[in-house]
Write a protein that binds this DNA or RNA. Structure first.
Lengths: 153, 153
DNA sequence: GTAATTTACATAGTGCGCTATTTAATAACC
DNA sequence: GGTTATTAAATAGCGCACTATGTAAATTAC
């Protein structure tokens, strides 16, 4: 019954935790976010807040749905997060005159200034990954390709 | 001042969202967990619950900290999750006689039986990723290597 | 011009995942 | 044997990230 045994071994490894790409992704994401939590402590930002700030440092005056598109996040996630950034006086939120359904998110002076401190973060992260820049870029590109596949189902 | 401009462009891309490995990881993890949410709906499991079940299908009768080690998760995360699995009658939890600080988590018959239905999940996931098995294994191995680096800081 | 539909955001509720702390049990030390 | 330190799990509180739903504004259809 070698055939059955092969199937058994195959099935065993199909459900084994270590085989799972999903678990590698999940566990590495947790480790990455732990590293960022440490680095972002002095900026007084959480990791998702930092991602939002990255978006706004790149392009100010975005709507909630504009930020949502960039980060693949729902307004149910973004609205409370942006309110906390507003409370920290890093952004301001206001309904646009053109379309009152839309909320425009803009950087405050304090929010813009925080960019200077944030500059050190990617350097520190790169050191922590122990990877070269080409390796990081290759891995990032593979992940982005994987995401596009996953999103097209 | 081309040198300054080079530095400026360098700094621009260092904080650009698309440059960030962290964001690729974060966004891909969100997409992966969305895919699993769809597939796991009929098993009535959340994604983290599924990961716990994977661990127990591989090795039954683990302590909370044993599961925590496998998944890199704290007891503050696991205890409520395991209570929900217990409520769904997939596991049972009991203090061990040898050391009453420890809680042993065991599969119920229902929990063991769920494994059969779970077998289809990795196959469906692999189809969704659009990657070959060697590609998946290579990406998984790179992520695991990255995690080890991140954890050693 | 009005009604129906769609859109953008907000809210409610749930399930994590974390830090900090508490509780109870075990181990180490004197 | 008693005290102190450590360990395992649980609890509290907070910040997401999601689904579902509600509210208000804009667009579309008639």
């Amino acid at each position: 019954m070698t055939d059955d045994n092969d199937n058994l071994d195959h099935d065993e490894s199909m459900l084994a935790l270590e085989s799972q790409l999903c678990f590698a992704l999940y566990a590495t994401q947790l480790s990455m976010s732990k590293l960022y939590r440490r680095l972002l402590k002095r900026l007084e930002l959480t990791y998702p807040q930092y991602l939002v700030m990255l978006v706004l440092w790149e392009e100010d005056h975005l709507t909630v749905s504009g930020i949502g598109e960039r980060l693949s996040l729902d307004s149910a996630t973004l609205t409370p997060l942006l309110k906390r950034l507003e409370g920290a006086e890093l952004v301001r939120r206001a309904r646009t005159r053109e379309d009152e359904r839309q909320v425009e998110v803009s950087l405050t002076d304090k929010g813009s200034a925080l960019r200077e401190q944030a500059r050190a973060v990617p350097v520190e992260v790169q050191q922590a990954t122990g990877c070269s820049r080409p390796e990081i870029q290759a891995l990032r590109d593979q992940l982005n390709a994987l995401k596009r596949h996953l999103d097209n189902i």
